[in-house]
Amino acid sequence: MAIPPLIPIIKNELGITNAQAGLLMTSLLLPYALTQVPAGYFGDKIGRKRLVVISILGYSLASSLMVFARQYWHLISVRALYGVFADLYYAPSTALISEVYKEKKGSALGVFMIGPPVGSAIAPAIVVPIALALEWRYSFVIISLMSALIGIALIHGVKGEVRHVERVNFAIPKNVFRLSLMNFIALAAFFGMLTFLPDFFVDKGRSIEEASFYFSLLSIVGIFGSIAGGTIYDRVGKGSLFSALFFNMFLSFLLVKTTYPILVLPLGLFFYSVGPIVTAYTSEHATPENLGTVMGFVNMMGFFGATIGPYFIGLLIDRVGYEMAFYSISGMYLVSLLIFMFEWK
């Protein structure tokens, strides 16, 4: 998430369009999505911790290569390589947590998933000052070193595999396809919003520092939203997903209508609550033998949506402007809500 707060600077230096800026997220998310199912399967097969370590060290090295990028296609290539390693992370991690914590998996996943909002919150505070003082490429060197340290800590902090699956089953039940479609649309809206939210505020007359602050604020509140979402799921089940999707639809509409920055506070709560809820709900559609595969499939479909979302929103911004493009995000949450209502029945 270092890219969104840097988009205004990158666009200015390279002279790229909003659609091309959206592709900087798409180029990462497409390879990330493509191998989610194999990542879940091989995590079950060779060891989930081992695959997570390979992922963290691999994408840390890949991201550091951004310091050598001088042309637009260089950026696209580095982001794609990052995505190849990043795709090994999610499925084995969430499968392991869901299996170990069982009845409390929502709460555990809620704590696990504070990672994205924490990362999104601190990213502008790290990358924007470096970009303004030195150059934006050096920002990626710093965050790569930070993430590499986490991989090294995991090697030494957790000895061996926490759980080993004896019989691995590469099977995807039919009842997860509608859930996967809902996740596809919801993550398209999520990443479309995240990619262009700082640029949206800049377009409305805010400075890049102020826009980055609002982006961080959304993510800081999202830390509490992630924990709350998982905890509420453990208590009320899938009804929590209905509420999260509804309020994301309503609040994203209200943000565009009013452009009040204060709305990032309630939006952040519901914005980041969807992840742990969907992940916990997905785990209930699988058995221990195919848990990694099912988690990988639903996340794969979600990140196909995440791949399309930033480019689609960027294209709409170029064609019809920021306001109409951001209204479409609210529309996507509405469609995902309707799909989930059929799933609920």
Rank of each mutant, 00 (worst) to 15 (best):
S216V: 04
L218D: 09
V221G: 01
G222K: 05
I223V: 15
S226Q: 11
I227W: 13
A228Y: 06
A228K: 02
T231K: 14
I232N: 03
D234S: 09
R235Y: 15
G237T: 00
G237I: 02
G237R: 01
G237S: 05
G239T: 10
F242R: 13
S243F: 15
A244C: 06
L245P: 01
L245Q: 06
F246K: 09
F247R: 05
F247Q: 11
F247K: 08
N248R: 06
M249G: 02
F250R: 01
L251K: 05
L251D: 00
L251R: 03
F253I: 00
L255P: 01
T258C: 00
Y260L: 14
Y260P: 00
Y260S: 14
P261M: 14
L263I: 07
L263G: 02
P266I: 10
L267F: 11
G268V: 01
L269V: 14
F271L: 11
Y272H: 15
S273C: 10
S273F: 12
P276H: 10
P276I: 07
P276L: 07
V278P: 08
V278K: 06
T279H: 11
A280D: 10
A280V: 07
Y281V: 05
Y281A: 11
S283M: 10
S283I: 05
H285K: 15
A286E: 00
T287K: 12
P288K: 01
N290H: 00
N290K: 01
T293A: 13
V294T: 09
V294G: 04
M295S: 09
M295D: 03
G296D: 13
V298L: 04
V298F: 02
N299E: 11
M300P: 00
M300I: 01
M301Q: 02
M301D: 01
G302A: 13
G302Y: 04
G302W: 02
G302P: 05
F303D: 11
